[in-house]
Computed example of a mutant assay.
Amino acid sequence: MKLLVLTGLSGAGKSQALKAAEDLGYYCVDNLPPALFPKFIEMVEEAQMPLVALVLDIRSGLFFNELDVAIQTLDKEVDDVTVIYLEADPHVLIQRFKELRRPHPLSSSIAKGIEEEKRRMEPLRARADHIIDTSKMTNYNLKIRLKSILIEERGKLGISVISFGFKNGILEEADLVFDMRFLPNPYYVSELKAKNGLNPETRDYVFGKKKAEDFVAFIVNYMKTFGDDYVAEGKEHLTIGIGCTGGFHRSVAMTERLGEALREAGYGVIVGHRDLGV
Rank of each mutant, 00 (worst) to 15 (best):
F97G: 05
E117R: 04
D89S: 10
L192M: 06
L106S: 10
S160C: 12
H104K: 11
L171P: 00
I149W: 00
R120E: 07
P105M: 10
N141R: 13
E115K: 13
L176Y: 06
L100A: 15
K143P: 00
A212Y: 06
N196H: 15
L86W: 13
S108H: 14
R125K: 15
E99W: 03
A174R: 01
R181H: 09
E172I: 02
I149Q: 00
P90C: 08
Y187Q: 01
R154D: 09
L142V: 04
A88G: 07
E117H: 07
L86I: 12
F182T: 01
G169N: 05
I114L: 08
V189E: 12
F182D: 06
E122S: 05
V177C: 04
K210T: 07
P184K: 07
L157A: 06
H104I: 10
A128Q: 05
D179F: 05
E99Q: 14
K98S: 08
D89E: 15
N196I: 04
E173I: 12
I149N: 00
R145V: 12
G113Q: 03
D129F: 09
L150C: 00
F97Y: 15
E201G: 02
K209S: 08
N139Y: 10
I110V: 14
V92W: 10
H91Y: 12
L124T: 02
I162K: 00
P103G: 10
L142N: 01
T202H: 08
I144C: 02
F97H: 11
L176E: 03
S160E: 14
R119Q: 12
E191D: 15
L100K: 14
S190K: 14
F166W: 13
L106T: 14
A212K: 03
G197Y: 02
N185D: 14
L100M: 13
L86V: 11
R181A: 09
K136Q: 08
D133K: 10
R181D: 08
Y140M: 06
I170K: 01
F178G: 01
Q95V: 00
